[in-house]
Design a binder for these strands. Structure first.
Length: 257
DNA sequence: ATGGCTCCATACTGGAGA
């Protein structure tokens, strides 16, 4: 099973790019973030026409997450991260697909830091860690995929010294990510490519993509039962070079059936 | 260090992203 994650940066504005990518690479499952569309404006018909069934949790203007599948409609487990009934931002959706629990997440950016947005990020992170432990306790294959807005280590940024005060790289953020993986999660890309320079995001400024001035912030975390099935993984970095592309590139893993 | 780009909302500008 090939599972992908892609921060599309506007599911309607980027629809031609999304459809082209689905058609060319045909992931079995695709987790999308930053739909930037309310629930009723999700382009369901076009995605169905492309061969996918979808569940999604939209929101006006910002955020929004979806899970697409071409191997049977995702069986929704939840569309809210537990732990805060006041949280109205659409940043998490979870489904069962052929025995795999797939969590699709869009962790808050958190800038400027410090400040209320950074506090919200760390609070959301704590809720994710609590839920992740609950999932681990189930001892089933779980894939937590998405835009974590975390640069895990120095080798995940083109110039890490420029990011030291940024919410994506501050010590609290890196520590939260390290604590999460220490529960027993496998960072799929970094496990298969321990030392390579691999980015998933290139900003729109100053020809960042052409200069490969990027960040690795979109991640796959696998429970032990899923990590055992890991065959391969990579970034479709060429997609970032397409006309009207998102500033993120798609990331994917292949799991043994 | 700064400013650069692109989305969405419903507008001629601003918030947010990372």
């Amino acid at each position: 099973m090939k599972i992908a994650t892609y921060n599309v940066n506007g599911v309607n504005g980027r629809l031609p790019v999304l459809l082209r990518w689905l058609n060319e690479t045909k992931p079995d499952v695709a987790c999308l973030q930053e739909l930037k569309a309310p629930q009723e404006k999700f382009p369901e018909a076009a995605i169905n026409d492309a061969g996918y069934q979808a569940i999604w949790h939209g929101q006006k203007s910002w955020n929004g997450v979806a899970i697409l599948s071409r191997i049977g409609k995702p069986a929704e487990i939840r569309q809210v991260l537990p732990g805060d009934t006041e949280d109205e931002q659409s940043r998490y959706i979870e489904a069962n697909i052929q025995g795999i629990t797939v969590g699709c997440l869009y962790l808050p950016n958190g800038n400027p830091a410090p400040g209320p947005k950074f506090d919200y990020k760390l609070g959301w992170f704590a809720r994710l860690a609590t839920h992740a432990q609950t999932l681990l306790n189930q001892q089933v294959p779980v894939v937590l995929a998405g835009d974590y807005n975390v640069i895990p280590t120095d080798i995940d940024a083109y110039k890490p010294e420029r990011w030291v005060d940024d919410a994506l790289f501050r010590p609290e953020t890196r520590q939260a990510f390290a604590n999460l993986t220490a529960q027993g999660w496998t960072d799929a890309i970094r496990t298969l490519y321990p030392t390579e320079t691999i980015y998933t995001f290139w900003d729109y400024f100053r020809n960042a993509y052409e200069r490969n001035a990027g960040l690795r912030i979109d991640h796959f975390l696998l429970s032990p039962q899923a990590a055992k099935l890991l065959v391969s993984a990579n970034v479709d970095r060429n997609v970032r070079g397409w006309e009207k592309s998102s500033d993120h590139g798609p990331v994917w893993i292949e799991l043994k059936d």
